[in-house]
Simulated assay, not measured.
Amino acid sequence: MAQSLNRWVRRGLWACVAALATTATAAQAEGRIRVAQQFGIGYLLLDVVREQQLIEKHGKPLGVDVQVEWAQLSGATVMNEALLAGSLDIVSAGIPPALVLWDRTRGKQNVKVVASLGSLPNYLLTNNPNVRSLKDLSDKDRIAVPAAGVGFQSRTLQIETARQFGAAEFKRFDTISVSLPHPDATAALIKGGSEVNTHFSSAPFYYQALENKQVRKVLSSYDILGGPATFNVLYTTQKFHDENPKTYKAFYNALVEAEQFVKANKAKAAEVFIRVQQSKLSPELVRRIVEDPENDFTVTPQRTFVYADELQKLGVIKNRATSWKDYFFEEAHALPGS
């Protein structure tokens, strides 16, 4: 079943890329931006930007009427493929996939990070009563992640696996990982009876799953990274950054304003998420997530360098970063990042 799931997900991802490619143009003109986000409340800043039309707002003082196109996809693989194919201008994923693309495009597309979207933990959950730690996972278990082997969850798990089992074993759990969007993985975990019995989950999905008494947390990404750390980021190519300075600035300023809005209006921000995502979650739950002190919706990067350092040691990326500023565009450099 794992193979069939992977085939199904791959077909879906490539279908999305093909659909997006039909709208791509050979050259981007200043004043147009195509942005893609994934699922979950980790993308709240983008929900605020979208509903309040903040990109358009910040484009006007710069003399640009920005035309914004939004897409919603699942998984780092399709994001990266679409960005390199020129089907999207700004994509979103966890910091590990962004670092891999930064590493592999140096001297070519020169992909770099625009901004953080927030520091939120991811929880490794299971409904298998025999799994209390990573050492209890076996070939009979299946771990659901949005992008098996390459996404935020897989890379985070690889870092912890290397610590517990040795660097040579860092891909130990890749063989039992399957690519599955968070909503589907959550449903499988809650319902039970599926071969997918473990899920490296993001908010709001782990909140939902943990309401089921058969589901429990094995570990948190914060445990692995040593504290609050950036979950997902936005990134783009040097070409888009350099050829569209006004549009880029409008986008970045929009993110900054969105952060300010969320921090000052958490209840209203929760309402924005429900409206934009057409979420069926209860307003009380969404507000609890937004107000949870573990969750910080900020453009400031936190502990991203842990990934850069650890993934370079494991050979996932070849180029060694000396600072987080090496893989972020200069607009973010004034922030107290890490």
Rank of each mutant, 00 (worst) to 15 (best):
M1Y: 06
M1D: 08
R7W: 13
G12C: 10
L13T: 14
A15R: 04
C16I: 10
V17L: 15
A19V: 06
T22G: 11
A26R: 15
A27M: 11
E30S: 14
I33R: 08
F39G: 00
L45D: 01
L46D: 14
V49G: 03
Q52T: 01
Q52D: 10
P61Q: 01
A71S: 14
A71K: 10
Q72M: 13
L73K: 02
L73D: 07
M79I: 11
E81K: 05
L83Q: 06
S87C: 12
L88H: 06
S92K: 03
L99W: 08
L101H: 10
T105V: 03
Q109W: 02
V113R: 08
V114P: 09
S116W: 00
L117M: 14
L117S: 10
S119N: 05
Y123C: 11
P129D: 01
P129T: 06
K135N: 04
R142Q: 13
G149L: 00
R155D: 09
T161V: 00
E169C: 04
F173A: 01
S177W: 10
S177F: 11
H182N: 15
P183N: 07
A188I: 05
L189G: 03
K191C: 04
S194C: 06
N197H: 13
F200V: 08
Y206F: 12
Y207H: 08
Q208S: 06
L210N: 15
N212F: 03
V215K: 02
R216N: 13
R216S: 13
K217D: 05
L219N: 12
S221E: 05
D223F: 07
G226F: 07
P228C: 12
P228W: 12
P228V: 10
N232M: 04
A250W: 09
F251L: 10
F251I: 02
A254F: 07
E257M: 03
R275D: 14
Q277V: 09
P283C: 05
E284A: 05
V286R: 00
R288N: 12
I289Y: 03
F297D: 08
F297R: 14
P301W: 01
R303E: 04
V306S: 10
Y307C: 00
Q312I: 06
K318P: 10
R320H: 00
F329V: 07
A332R: 02
G337M: 13
